[in-house]
Computed example of a mutant assay.
Amino acid sequence: MADPTPVIDDLRAESEELDRLVAELTPEQWKLPTPATGWTIAHQIAHLSWTDRSARMAMTDQDAFSREVEKALVAPGDFVDAGAREGAERPPERLLGGWRAEREALDKVLRAAPERGRFPWYGPPMSTASMATARLMETWAHGLDVADALGVTPVPTDRLRHIARLGVRTRDFAFGVHGLAMPFEEFRVELTAPSGELWTYGPDNADQRVTGPALDFCLLVTQRAHRSDLDLRAEGPEAEQWLGIAQVFAGPPGGGRPPKSAPAGQSAETPTEPPAGPPSGEAG
């Protein structure tokens, strides 16, 4: 992706859609639990604000960002949750205002950054497009958690194209993080966009294939739904294996969500993750 402007524009639109969902919440609603165990709506927005700040820092003050990475290395299992907890303790108006300010500041930094710039991150360095794609992916995924808490079903849009592409590009990471041999050949992936357009990736004659709705694929790779609840079809053993382990976010294997038919009382694993970015360090 030579020009990162389209994904930056879509990140802004996705953020504004989530903003409309939380702008008029009561203090009690901010405390509603989301599918992430122990996380309320306030935690979700606090996490997005914190990660937007980290992204902006990585792009503008690399010394300060290096100090943040050092903190993460000291407490690798807690630093993401700690940032969410700290933000969630703020009054709702401060939390919402802080998130708006952070994402606006990041938007300006992304638009001013060189197209082929490289910036440090918690994993490999990121390009401008990679950083924007990662923020879009997280905003969409955590927005789903907020919507779930409010009993709202978001309308999918073709902004999912960026997440779908990232999901395809992180195939090898998913195999590697599970200690599995990476497939040698490319897969064919055919996804039907919300608009009805067909998005295709990989060679048409590939033996391993994945087909289905783009929404379902994005829910799978962000681990917001269990594979058994999604209308995705795999052809070939490696494609079948991939759909059982796919994840678009960096870090160790995620616990994912239980199937909707899970026994009563079984809760979802906490779907928090390191400040997300393409594990390969490149989305653009």
Rank of each mutant, 00 (worst) to 15 (best):
G284E: 08
A234D: 01
R111T: 11
R67E: 14
P76K: 15
D172F: 10
A225G: 10
D231E: 10
A2Y: 15
L106A: 02
F79N: 07
H226I: 00
F184D: 13
F79D: 05
A234Y: 15
P6E: 12
G212Y: 04
A134S: 14
P203W: 01
P154T: 04
P120W: 08
E273L: 08
E190C: 09
A105Y: 14
L144E: 13
A75R: 10
E93T: 11
T270Y: 14
P124M: 02
P91F: 13
G151T: 13
W242Q: 04
E86N: 11
P263L: 02
L160M: 12
S15M: 06
I45W: 12
T200A: 12
R224G: 00
A225L: 00
V69T: 07
E273C: 08
A246G: 08
P258G: 05
V177L: 06
G123Q: 02
G284V: 04
R67V: 09
P156R: 03
G255V: 11
A13Y: 02
M137P: 07
W242R: 03
L18Q: 09
A112D: 14
A250I: 15
G251H: 11
D10S: 09
Q208C: 00
A36S: 07
A147C: 10
D10P: 06
P76A: 12
F173L: 05
A105T: 11
A234C: 08
A264H: 11
D10A: 10
T40N: 05
T51E: 09
Q62C: 02
V146E: 01
R85L: 07
T222K: 05
